[in-house]
Design a binder for these strands. Structure first.
Length: 274
DNA sequence: CCAGCCCCCTGTCGGC
DNA sequence: TGCCGACAGGGGGCTG
């Protein structure tokens, strides 16, 4: 589910209800939701700590606590939101809950159970070495080319590999390639200088638009206040197969690339040479 | 190192 | 209507 814009929206929405609050208790009904340390140790160690800051790296949510970092990855269907303790909640997929000192709970819900929570003092030991943040100034066309250029390999999977660039997933990869006029199977060795400039700008544009619209609620994603994001209303290709391209009217194509559904306009994103 | 495939899980949807 | 396979925003691991 959540890519950079969705995770950023969650982070922003959680700061007000959580910063300064302390964790009075932890409840869970499925120990595997806690990846490390053991669920028992996690609970003992996190209880009593306060939320000092909440940030994001790639699609990871980083809770800076008094003595540890709690890292949460939402994967496909994870949600994080606060509710007053005991409030009626129809969400039947809450597997981890933090009881706060002000009578509210932080709930971690996840229908598909792919999401995980971690407690650590060493960020990199959990998330690994990831590529640059595409919305930072340092993310230039040259950096992008150095990361993924010169390969006889399809561009789309390279964009989605978090070790190359942080935060791009299936939706925003399709949207960025459409905006840049590049076919998803295009080999990166064939891109021109202008292609790299266009692609770098396209990535930033679609991610910023996603944040401005508070994320895409195709299905599972919800903001911390429970509302849907609006980003899906603005997609040009994702989920629009067999619908007309907004620029040229050609029907949007859908194919599989590296096992992922891939949407593009065959006219605006010509295959060209490889 | 890389591509391809499977797995982790559950819900939903389209086709028959 | 009911069943079944395919597919879903992610990512880690294995194999060849």
């Amino acid at each position: 589910m959540p890519e950079l814009p969705e995770v950023e929206t969650v982070v922003r929405g959680l700061r007000a209800p959580l910063i300064g609050r302390s964790i009075a208790g932890v409840w869970y009904d499925w120990a595997k939701v806690i990846k490390t340390p053991s669920a028992e140790d996690f609970k003992a160690r996190i209880t009593g700590q306060s939320f000092r800051a909440i940030t994001r790296r790639a699609k990871w949510i980083i809770f800076e606590l008094d003595h540890d970092l709690m890292l949460v990855h939402l994967r496909m269907t994870g949600r994080l939101y606060t509710l007053p303790r005991g409030a009626e909640n129809p969400d039947k997929w809450v597997h981890l809950r933090f009881e706060l000192d002000n009578g509210e709970d932080l709930n971690f819900s996840d229908a598909r159970r792919f999401g995980r929570a971690y407690l650590t003092t060493d960020l990199v030991s959990v998330i690994g070495e990831l590529g640059p943040e595409p919305l930072e100034d340092a993310f230039t066309a040259d950096v992008l080319r150095q990361r993924i250029g010169g390969r006889r390999a399809a561009i789309k999977p390279l964009l989605m590999d978090q070790k190359n660039i942080a935060g791009i997933g299936n939706i925003y990869a399709d949207e960025a390639l459409y905006r840049a006029g590049l076919h998803p199977l295009r080999h990166t060795a064939t891109l021109t200088d202008q292609d790299w400039v266009n692609l770098r700008q396209a990535i930033r544009d679609v991610l910023n638009a996603g944040i401005d619209h508070e994320g895409a609620s195709i299905n599972w994603y919800r903001k911390p206040d429970g509302e849907r994001g609006e980003s899906q209303e603005y997609f040009n290709v994702y989920g629009r197969d067999k619908q007309p391209c907004r620029k040229c009217g050609t029907l949007i194509s859908k194919v599989r690339v590296a096992q992922r559904g891939t949407h593009f306009c065959a006219n605006c994103q010509p295959e060209q040479s490889v």
